[in-house]
Amino acid sequence: MNIFRLSGDVCHLVAIIILFLKIWRSKSCAGISGKSQLLFALVFTTRYLDLFTAFISIYNTVMKVVFLVLAYATVSLIYFRFRKSYDSESDSFRVEFLLVPVAGLSFLENYSFTPLEILWTFSIYLESVAILPQLFMITKTGEAESITTHYLFFLGLYRTLYLANWVWRYHEEGFFDQIAVVSGVVQTIFYCDFFYLYFTRVLRGSGKMTLP
């Protein structure tokens, strides 16, 4: 464990909590892509199957449980409790265009052809594109509430810190997980455009982030 990975995990947790509390307190999921949240729940489900078979540390186990619980709780808020405020019209990204290539690639490019390993690889590839429906929805509506942009900021920060974590681990331990790194770089690139808008608009106190 290193400070980059730890702070990355904390940012990830903060992002998920920001989103959950926003929906819970505003009793609305307007502007939130339910599809992205479904994909994240699928990412955690397919990645954390080793929750009961491989014990790594208390921290690892606790964080996995927390991420799974919050992911499913957020999905249930969107699709059940506050479904009247779910804007399915704007959340129109075709997730099958993500799931099919990701599933195909996880069968082709993996470390070992076992169910657990293929599902883990699937979760790694899926996570790198899971945010796209949300980013697409923002471009479609042309705006995002500032709290939603803070959610995206912490999510992007978590991914950026993980890149630093991999540089550190390669330098310190010679550890290099090619699938995770390549997929993580792709994922972080998707946030670059958002980061630009976030720093130039939201942090200038313009409240909402409205796209040009």
Binding site: I56, N60, M63, K64, F67, N110, Y111, F113, E117, W120
Partner: peptide, 10 residues
């Protein structure tokens, strides 16, 4: 296919 790497990251 070399061996699966340790899965210690979240």
């Amino acid at each position: 296919d070399d061996d699966a790497l340790p899965k210690d990251e979240l």
